[in-house]
């Protein structure tokens, strides 16, 4: 039997996710999620939970739908023309795609950090202050100062930038810019932080700092991270979800996924037998 060629028969139409996709303390709860780009279906009947204060890693080959799925969680896909999302997606019981739901506060509750650091062309201070200002979270300058400082501290950047808060955010190094983006996300007190390959443009040291940060942030936030680095998924996450051709193949404790996965496709992917 060749593991690389039996994909079609392994994930047929009646595919069931193996492992433990559902948990008791779900922060985000997704059921029967299907995503279409025009005629093309990108996500097939995905169901899973992300637990409160859990770090969930999503892995899989390019084009498997992991980023598409992640972006459904704070409706980033709304901006893509022709993209249609079906199914139940709930944030603490509230329908993320409900007609009454305003996406602006949703994206404050469910923040996102992208692959490429994208600070605003403003000062470091204003990068952080922007969110609290537009969401009306502060009334006084001192409160804003406090939010800027705590956010930068939580993102592990305060000591490096405290003397140059007026300098442009774009002048920081790549790793610092990414931590600035994380600080910017934290500034609006989110409940969930989505990370879409947050370290793929960073060097190993900057990556290690972000990973350390993920571990610290997970004490207070629920984190979902899409990554191409399996070692990173193994290092930072509590549970790991493996996507393949738009289907959710397996969700299990990270320890289990990387030592003895339940599904042979997961095994084939993480051991480098196809990709």
């Amino acid at each position: 039997m060749n593991m690389a060629t039996n994909t079609a028969e392994t994930i047929g139409d009646n595919h069931q996710t193996v492992g433990t996709p559902f948990v008791d303390n779900a922060k985000l709860s997704m059921r029967n999620v299907n995503v279409f780009y025009g005629e093309k279906q990108a996500i097939f009947d995905v169901g899973m939970d992300i637990g409160t204060n859990e770090v969930m890693a999503m892995i899989g080959p390019s084009g498997c739908g992991k980023s598409t799925f992640l972006r459904c969680l704070n409706r980033m896909n709304d901006t893509i023309e022709g993209c249609r999302v079906e199914g139940d997606l709930n944030l603490e019981g509230e329908d993320i795609y409900g007609a009454k739901l305003d996406v602006v506060p949703l994206r404050a509750r469910v923040g996102i950090v992208f692959q490429k650091p994208n600070p605003f062309p403003k000062s470091i201070y204003d990068n952080i202050a922007y969110g609290p200002r537009i969401h009306g979270l502060v009334s006084k300058r001192t409160e804003l100062d406090e939010i800027v400082e705590t956010s930068l501290q939580k993102a592990g950047l305060w000591n490096e930038v405290k003397d140059r808060l007026d300098a442009p955010g774009t002048g920081l190094s790549g790793g610092q810019q990414q931590r600035l983006c994380i600080a910017r996300t934290i500034a609006v007190s989110p409940e969930v932080i989505l990370m879409d390959e947050p370290c793929s443009a960073l060097d190993p040291i900057a990556t290690a700092k972000i990973e350390e940060l993920i571990a610290e942030l997970s004490e207070n936030y629920t984190i979902a991270i899409v990554t191409h680095s399996m070692q990173q998924a193994a290092r930072v996450s509590n549970r790991t979800a493996y996507f393949h051709l738009g289907k959710l193949i397996e969700v299990n404790e990270t320890e289990k996924v990387f030592t003895n996965p339940d599904h042979q496709l997961t095994e084939a992917y993480i051991t480098g037998r196809f990709g």
Binding site: V257, F258, T259, P261, I270, T271
Partner: peptide, 10 residues
């Protein structure tokens, strides 16, 4: 060199 996982690690 390889950081083996799953059955390779075992």
């Amino acid at each position: 060199r390889r950081q083996p996982a799953a059955s390779d690690l075992r």
